[in-house]
């Protein structure tokens, strides 16, 4: 039952990918906002409030917009959050299957 949900998500994305009525930022927000994982520490509940505010006061966030339009090959990371995430042994264990040091004989809990 898990896979059917995922399948629809990817096709959702394929549909939105070339939908010119949505800006790339909107696509990212819509697709990731489905509870897959909050994009770098933005809580879902508070985000919708902020979003509404931003819609209302459109002119105000001009400086932020400028910043967003610049190209960044390396995204802006919140290093405190990253430090917390990667000092947790559970997270490291979950990543271990991506490394050659992983024990392949032990089954992984999918």
């Amino acid at each position: 039952l898990h896979s059917t949900q995922r399948q629809s998500r990817v096709s959702d994305f394929a549909r939105m990918l070339y939908d010119e009525s949505l800006s790339p930022v909107d696509v990212v927000r819509k697709w990731r906002g489905e509870g897959d994982k909050p994009a770098h520490g933005n809580g879902n509940a508070s985000e919708s409030d902020v979003e509404e505010d931003e819609k209302f006061f459109r002119k105000a966030k001009r400086d932020d917009e400028e910043e967003d339009l610049e190209d960044r090959p390396i995204p802006r990371y919140d290093y405190d959050a990253l430090a917390k995430k990667w000092s947790d042994p559970d997270n490291l264990e979950n990543l271990r299957h991506r490394f050659a040091t992983a024990n392949l004989l032990e089954g992984r809990d999918g």
């Binding site: 896979s3 995922r6 399948q7 990817v10 096709s11 994305f13 394929a14 990918l17 070339y18 010119e20 790339p24 930022v25 696509v27 990212v28 697709w31 990731r32 190209d71 960044r72 090959p73 995204p75």
Partner: peptide, 25 residues
């Protein structure tokens, strides 16, 4: 894939006449 620059790139490529991407699981 769902990062902003890559979505932008997909659209740019299409605008410049490349074929659209197929996306599947």
């Amino acid at each position: 894939l769902s990062s902003e620059p890559i979505i932008g790139l997909a659209r740019d490529l299409k605008a410049f006449g490349a074929n659209g991407w197929g996306v599947r699981e």
